[in-house]
């Protein structure tokens, strides 16, 4: 028995001579939530499609539950693709039953689960309504239910948060946590780092078709230099006291000119407490001292540079 639901090694794919994915390798450990992060066009969807055998790679291989993706393996997977929709003329319950049956759930059990999930997702009243009568958010929830109704061991969600309002995004986060707590493996792609930061045990960062990072969230955050934001009245010898701790940047005076804002990027191994201690010992009249907690976005910027960060921001605007 493999300990990984998915293993991909050296996956490479080009379309019309343009490389879409280059030498991507990673593993999704059973029972973990893995985030697959990167801007639009980073190669996330193509990698997921190759992982499931929907398209074949030019090079490399994917293993689903320890063997090449096949129909039996797919039945153990719940996949929510990025390009998704449901039959608008079918009722919410009929859609869920249809996809459950495609995954091998018997008709009676499929109906029972459909009603159960619709109730859990607050859609009990919409069971007999046609999809075209539902709001976009409700329809998206039906799609998510259709992807997990057969209670798969491995859930793959491609950009599951896109198109959802904040309330439904929180609901989806809750659902992902519940699935993981129930022992299921979850892999989801997103370009919104906050979701991954809150949910993931492990993240894979993609940029321009290549993997740029693979590790835990903490390991990713460790890639980012720590920063301290400070403010002090003009004339205080801030540079004299702190320049030895790292790169100190004057970010200008505040509106009334009563204080100057500083950003100190700490050298490796320096803790913010040491900076505070030095300030106190030097008698600096600080008006503001804020050790800044790094985020995955910062880690991404640190790993791929400013151009990658701009692509990420453009993706956020597109969605």
């Amino acid at each position: 028995m493999t300990e990984y639901a998915l293993v991909v090694e050296g996956l490479t794919k080009s379309f019309g001579g343009k490389p879409a994915v280059r030498e991507v390798s990673f593993k999704a450990a059973k029972g973990e939530i893995t985030g697959f992060l990167g801007p639009n066009g980073a190669g996330k969807t193509t990698t997921l499609r190759m992982s499931l055998g929907v398209i074949g790679p030019d090079r490399g291989r994917a293993e689903l539950f320890g063997r090449a993706p096949d129909a039996a393996g797919m039945d153990r997977v719940g996949f929510l693709p990025e390009e998704r929709g449901v039959y608008r003329k079918m009722t919410a319950e009929a859609v869920i039953v249809f996809f459950a049956r495609l995954k091998g759930v018997p008709a009676g059990e499929a109906r029972r689960r459909a009603r159960d999930y619709l109730e859990r997702f607050g859609l009990a009243d919409a069971a007999k309504k046609k999809i075209k009568e539902l709001s976009k958010g409700m329809a998206q929830k039906v799609q998510i239910i259709a992807a997990i109704v057969h209670e798969p061991e491995f859930i793959i969600l491609d950009e599951p948060f896109s198109g959802l309002d904040p309330v439904n995004q929180a609901l989806l986060e809750q659902m992902i946590r519940e699935q993981a707590e129930a022992g299921r493996t979850v892999l989801f792609s997103t370009h919104v780092m906050e979701h991954a930061e809150r949910l993931c045990d492990r993240i894979i960062l993609m940029a321009r078709g290549q993997k740029v990072f693979d590790g835990t969230v903490n390991e990713a955050l460790a890639q980012v230099p720590r920063q301290v934001l400070l403010a002090a009245p003009p004339g205080e010898p801030v540079e004299d006291v702190l320049s030895g701790f790292g790169e100190l940047v004057n970010e200008g005076e505040d509106e009334d000119g009563a204080e100057i804002n500083w950003r100190l990027t700490l050298n490796a191994g320096i803790e913010s407490q040491a900076v505070l201690r030095a300030c106190v010992e030097a008698g600096l009249k600080l008006t503001h001292f804020e050790p800044r907690r790094p985020h995955l976005h910062d880690a991404f910027v640190a790993l791929v540079g400013e151009e990658g960060a701009r692509e990420l921001e453009a993706s956020a605007e597109d969605n």
């Binding site: 797919m74 693709p81 390009e83 929709g85 039959y87 996809f99 995954k103 259709a146 992807a147």
Partner: peptide, 13 residues
């Protein structure tokens, strides 16, 4: 247009 095909592809070849 309704983006159903890719959903189907997750369950059928």
């Amino acid at each position: 247009g309704g983006k159903i095909i890719e959903v189907l592809l997750s369950t059928a070849r």
